[in-house]
Write a protein that binds this DNA or RNA. Sequence first.
DNA 1: CAACAGAACTTGACATTGTTTAGATTCTAG
DNA 2: CTAGAATCTAAACAATGTCAAGTTCTGTTG
Lengths: 212, 212
Amino acid sequence: MSSSVATQTKPGRYHHGDLRNALLDAARELASEIGVDNFTLREVARRANVSPAAPYHHFADKRDLTRALAIEAFSKLTTALSNAKHKKHSPLEQLEQVGIAYVMFAFEHLAEFRFMFRRELCAEEGDFDPLETAGINAQAVLHNTVLEAQNAKQIIAENPQDIVITLWSVVHGLSCILLESPLSKTTTAKSAKNMAKSVVQLSIQGILAHRE
Amino acid sequence: MSSSVATQTKPGRYHHGDLRNALLDAARELASEIGVDNFTLREVARRANVSPAAPYHHFADKRDLTRALAIEAFSKLTTALSNAKHKKHSPLEQLEQVGIAYVMFAFEHLAEFRFMFRRELCAEEGDFDPLETAGINAQAVLHNTVLEAQNAKQIIAENPQDIVITLWSVVHGLSCILLESPLSKTTTAKSAKNMAKSVVQLSIQGILAHRE
DNA sequence: CAACAGAACTTGACATTGTTTAGATTCTAG
DNA sequence: CTAGAATCTAAACAATGTCAAGTTCTGTTG
């Protein structure tokens, strides 16, 4: 998307034009090729055709670059969840859609997903942390849907936070398993979606207001 | 435990005695201090009082060392789950215990837990992978309990694999959230256990055989 | 018991990495 | 047009993963 735009700005020039985004694009690409853990800042710079020190004019250090990617990924996730939600009208159906969308986002944005949940990227205690708020925003989509489903008496009136955590846990857990477990080497997008659906439906069963 | 034994074998000698275990101990310790991602092989060697090249006589490379830690951690998890299970007799109660034990294991063995789920540690497709079997063993505890609960007609007769994945997802997801999310900086063991209990109970609600 | 084979280490080296410092180049206000 | 800020390069540093070549120990065999 923005990658083609950002990366190819006047190759010969001294000033790159939009190096910050070019670096982000290169990092995303590199991480999806060789893994989030062994990607190097120097190679990112190399791919953007700049010197190894150039990134330091746009990011404090390597950690700061990956943090920017994580924030960006969280905001993508937020819109993905929000889009999925608004495909349905009933809060209960929305709950299901949001859950499935979470897993599919992880499946489709593998590399970015791995950037998102890393304790070491967070700011120090007390500092304002944009990464933290990005995460909270994503979670808010689920949280609101739970509240709406409760208001519509479609699910039990238990402490909403407990319900949010349960649902978030189950979709996040499935995502991690799909991405990291060796069991899942052969998983296709279709079977991932089926698993997501079945897991989400089973979880929702436990919080339904009317037991048939 | 074994650390004190393994680490302190005749400090002056050329041959360490049990360097392999000493390295594993040092790596575990170091990882829990500075994180799984930035721990270095050289520092591990330093702590075991050997040269930087010494580890290569016991492990193929850094990855191989961490793989050994992951396998070891999986086997610890297996016994933790198994112990938790056998505290109760009813399969349904066992299911709950196993779920809670999973989360508590993650909480108490933070560093080791982070070693366990990393795709890059797996062997190549087709090769026999001890890490994979270690993971399967741990999952088997949950799997068996689900089967037993189904046989006892305590939970629905749905495809057992779906139920296993749902339960595994929810406890794994909660574990990841507790460990990686910035939201959880202040979580105590007690509140972790409470969350685990509530999340597991809600999930089990969805698969109960008798809906009152 | 002696000598030898192999295992367990060390030394020293290499390419690569993250990061810093100093300097060069280009852009942009005034 | 020009000063100063923004953006980049070049060169260097310590540290890392890893390897090849030696060194020292240990157990086995004659």
